[in-house]
Amino acid sequence: MSDKKKSNIFQRLGESQVWKSIIRSGIPRTRRQRMMSVLNSVFLHLHPVRLPRHAVKVKFTWCMGGLTFFLFLVLTITGILLMFYYRPTVEYAYTDMIDLGEQVPLGIMREIHRWGAHAMVITVWLHMFRVFMTGSYKPPREFNWVVGVILLTLTLLLSFTGYLLPWDQLAIWAVTVGSNMARATPFLGHEGPGAALLALGDINFVNIGSDVKFALLGGRFVGEAALLRFYVLHCIGLPFIVMILMAIHFWRIRKDGGISGPT
């Protein structure tokens, strides 16, 4: 860059000490600077520096994995904001929902959170569909597909635990229908096949107060304890596992040779 053009404020900013202390390679203009800006950024270095040409084509990648991650971030941010207003108790949960809609200015956080969650379920499915249709699970990427399947399951569980939190009729009955399945778990649910075998004389080890449904809900039906359990799982428990697995998922993409392509 010639010194004559230094009048441009952005250029001067790009050369300043403050800017250079944060982004060392300056404004990426040259090929070298562009490569360094990816290498030196903690976020961008998820990516390699260079990619095969087909890997940046939308009709090949559909952007679905990236959008899933983006939606996860949107959901995290809106979720944190919602946590300021929401108390997970039978007494307050529903009224806090109404307050969110009526008292909070420009309150569309709950909408963004709910529709974003629906959208994330769809983007995860489509991402999996793309990976399948391009045969990208084939060696050496088998294990990353497995991690992806676990992430898909966790996405559904995150969405399911969040479904209860508004504590309206839609919420408790949807979760009741869902969690009623648990009592039919073979051996571990009190209405499951084989549970009657786990007994000592007349004492059933698996009964209505000790089966997996009880463990899931913290009670015999969807009540106070279930609300708290789902809240903790939704806000802390599942996101914690998801974040670890996401780190593995992204790391493995690079370690397994980057985005798949024909050889």
Binding site: H118, Y163, L170, W173, V177, G223
Partner: peptide, 26 residues
């Protein structure tokens, strides 16, 4: 999100089950 409000039905009532009771769509 601006165009469509998130649904909120009546407060949870364990004594009154809606018909049909459906799980989340997925």
């Amino acid at each position: 999100s601006i165009g469509l409000e998130a649904p909120l039905e009546g407060p949870a009532n364990p004594a009154e089950s809606p018909n049909p009771s459906k799980a989340p769509w997925y």
